[in-house]
């Protein structure tokens, strides 16, 4: 966003444009180099909405057909509303430069059955610019916390017609949050299990604010209300809640419980006849995990959730395991 309101070149009086986030500017009339004092603000970009209502509804219907969602969703799903909004995001680039050294331990068995632990020394350079795009307001129930792809045509043309959510989180919090996340990601990328030396420098390179168009679709299925959000630039579904399929669900539950029970029982039977308690223990644990997952799947009813929802930690593994259980049945 360029601001030119009321700002004039102190040398020639010409109207000047100040790009937010930049301190140094050049007067286009007299060539003077100028300095914007104080808080230069943050560069702000808005992306043009490229979707219309029909396209958004088509994308939602296609999304309904994917995964373990109720198969009669297209028949029974009733559209309640569909509208675009602008959501604010902080977009940061954080440079990480350093070294993480240490070792990895590998245990192997020799011919006589003795186990040996080998230490493999590791030195990993971490040198990367990490880009994050985090939502700058309370996303409510939209299930959007970050954007994967930022791009499109920058334009404020739709700003008048599309409701805009104001940014409520601070620039400093965003910079600090990005620094923490960059360090975590750098450590993960380095992949050194046992660290003996770490020297990492983290430098915030840039921050900007992005207004991104998102379509909100609300619909009902039976008695319950569900929603989906669609990327206003790419037309892809970003997040959503949908009813699960009762058949898939019950198959997962019966398949899961019976499989869990079988493995747990097999663990006990095999384990009883063996000198090595680990088989029994392992079998029982695996069985219990499957039982537990099945229970969670069942308990949370038939809802399929995609996106960054607060309770996603609870539900996401269920979805994954549900699909795996489906595979096991075949």
């Amino acid at each position: 966003m360029s601001l030119s309101v009321g700002l004039n070149c102190p040398a020639c009086g010409g109207a000047i444009k100040v790009n937010e986030g930049e301190h140094v500017l050049n007067c286009q009339y007299c060539g003077s180099t100028l300095w914007a004092e104080g808080d230069a603000g943050v560069l702000t970009v808005a992306y043009k909405n490229m979707q219309d209502r029909d396209g958004v509804l088509r994308a939602t219907e296609q999304w309904w057909r994917k995964g373990l969602k109720a198969r009669d969703l297209r028949k029974k799903g009733r559209l309640l509303e569909c509208y675009p909004i602008y959501l604010p995001f902080w977009s940061t680039v954080t440079r990480v430069a350093g070294w993480i050294c240490g070792y990895e331990e590998r245990t192997y068995q020799d011919r006589d059955g003795h186990s040996h632990t080998e230490r493999i020394p590791k030195e990993e350079m971490v040198l990367n610019d990490y880009n994050y795009t985090n939502i700058a307001c309370d996303p409510g129930d939209l299930g959007i916390k970050r954007l994967r792809n930022i791009g499109g045509e920058a334009s404020f043309a739709d700003f008048e017609s599309i409701p805009t959510f104001e940014s409520t989180t601070s620039k400093d919090d965003s910079v600090n949050g990005s620094k923490e996340k960059a360090l975590q990601d750098a450590r993960r990328d380095a992949g050194v299990p046992h660290v003996t030396f770490e020297k990492v420098t983290i430098i915030p390179k840039s921050i900007s604010q992005i207004y991104y168009p998102v379509w909100v679709v609300r619909y009902s299925y039976g008695e319950r209300m569900y929603m989906a959000t669609v990327d206003g630039v790419t037309g892809n579904v970003l997040s959503g809640r949908a009813p699960g399929d009762p058949l898939y669900q019950s198959l997962a539950v019966t398949g899961g419980t019976s499989l869990g029970g079988l493995i747990a029982a097999a663990g006990l039977i095999v384990g009883a006849g063996s000198d090595d308690g680990t088989i029994m223990f392992g079998g029982v644990i695996v069985g219990l995990v499957i039982l537990g997952v099945t229970y969670m799947f069942f308990r949370h009813g038939s809802e399929i959730i995609e996106g960054d929802f607060e309770d996603k930690k609870m539900k996401n593994p269920l979805k994954d395991i549900g699909i795996e259980l489906g595979g096991l049945r075949i």
Partner: peptide
């Protein structure tokens, strides 16, 4: 926000870049 002309702190000549 205030905009100032950048001048050399030693000889006060404006900087043109």
């Amino acid at each position: 926000m205030k905009v100032v002309q950048i001048k050399c702190p030693r000889c006060q000549q404006p900087i043109n870049s």
